[in-house]
Design a protein around this nucleic acid. Structure first.
Lengths: 129, 129
DNA sequence: TATCAGATTGGAATCGTTATTGTAAAGACC
DNA sequence: GGTCTTTACAATAACGATTCCAATCTGATA
């Protein structure tokens, strides 16, 4: 509860439900999945609240928005630096906790000030193989 | 013209206009941008034709669909292996022609059969700096 | 507890994308 | 060439994800 206060966002029952759903969630859920889940407890929950809360959390740096799935945005509450590996068959996403020390040579960067990187591996998962 | 025939898709005036717009295009255009461009010459051009053609080209392996921009799909006619760097301010995308030899250790892959990777750098471009 | 900035709601609008449908072109066979 | 069958096309309508908006409500602070 104290850690929620540290988020510096106004806490409401709806937001707490969303936070609770996200906490420790490794499923990289979409807005729709969060909605379906929290609606059980809060039947009046609206999509606007989901999106507003996710946007607020994103701006405060508490969740990451993943661009992996072209069909919809997915969110990742795990802010520790990590990458992802996606199964091209079942679309499930897993975390890759390994740091790759790759850098862009000055001449390749072309005046860019690089602030970060994302690596996305793809292949077939154990189940789909 | 001969290279277009090699694509193994039926060539129509609309498709040729789209192909011409894509050829050598380094702007990583979205469907909307292609639409706006070819509409000048073909006022009856519809979005469906754009999407159908892009899908056909993608399936034949002639263009790549980029998932970099969460707001919309972008397409890259450059099929040579390369990565991208995105400006977080103006959303422009540039190519990174450098190979990074990174591999997932067996234990990290967790049963995954890795078939490829994408690296996406982000930062601020020369203009936005 | 009174106040108010910020949050919620629900519906409608928007935007990117996909499915449907009518039509035209391309083959196949005689 | 003429009919039948099949395929591909473009336009329209439909769809799903996301955003916007106005009215109402509420958590946090004084």
């Amino acid at each position: 509860m104290e850690r929620y206060r540290r988020l510096n966002i106004k806490l409401t029952p709806q937001r707490l439900a969303i936070l609770k759903h996200l906490e420790g969630n490794k499923a990289h859920p979409s807005a729709d999945e969060i909605y379906k889940s929290v609606k059980k407890k809060y039947p009046t929950m609206s999509f606007a609240t989901i999106y507003n809360t996710l946007e607020a959390l994103k701006e405060k740096g508490n969740i990451r928005e993943l661009k992996i799935d072209p069909a919809k945005k997915r969110y990742d509450p795990d802010m520790s630096p990590h990458h992802h590996i996606i199964c091209t068959k079942c679309s499930s996403i897993f975390d890759v906790y390994k740091d790759f020390d790759i850098r862009l040579p000055e001449e390749t960067a072309g005046g860019f000030k690089v602030s970060g990187k994302n690596i996305e591996f793809f292949g077939t998962c154990r189940k789909c193989k």
